[in-house]
């Protein structure tokens, strides 16, 4: 389990953070949770994160801004967006910027799991 890939979960809603963390760890991944994009960007776990699952609308930096910021740093971490307020415009923008997936809350866990698998595959390829 020491080398289990790390998934970072960013959501301002605590119950959602915990739920996703529980799901992800049940799959055998390591997981870190952050209440805001800023906290994640400052975190030492940034370097060994294999996949990011982030909320779209958060106080402070939004999910899309986080994506931009990571790209600007040259980090190509696969990102899965999750939102309770699906908006086509934001979805198109996130996907165009290379997001792996875009899920509307409440989402089916199977869909998230498939996306995580996809993220791990792309991670292995590069």
């Amino acid at each position: 389990m020491q080398h289990a890939p790390i998934i970072s979960i960013i959501d301002d809603d605590e119950s959602m953070r915990c739920a996703v963390k529980s799901l992800v760890t049940s799959l055998g991944f390591g997981a870190y949770t952050f209440a805001s994009a800023e906290k994640f960007l400052q975190s030492p776990h940034l370097d060994h994160t294999s996949c990011v699952i982030t909320d779209l609308q958060m106080p402070g930096l939004s999910g899309v801004e986080l994506q931009k910021s990571l790209l600007a740093q040259g980090r190509r971490i696969p990102i899965i967006f999750v939102t309770a307020f699906p908006e086509e415009r934001l979805r198109a923008r996130a996907m165009a910027a290379g997001a792996l997936g875009f899920l509307s809350k409440p989402f089916e866990s199977e869909t998230l799991i498939k996306l995580i698998d996809k993220a791990m595959e792309t991670g292995r390829k590069t």
């Binding site: 809603d13 119950s15 959602m16 915990c18 739920a19 996703v20 529980s22 799901l23 049940s26 799959l27 999750v82 309770a84 307020f85 509307s104 809350k105 409440p106 989402f107 089916e108 866990s109 998230l112």
Partner: peptide, 28 residues
Amino acid sequence: SASIAHEMNQPLASIVTNADAASRWMAR
């Protein structure tokens, strides 16, 4: 109505995801 949808989806999503996680922990 949009806000209510947003507010309600939050706990609903948490419930669904937690339930799935719970069944996975059980299925181990």
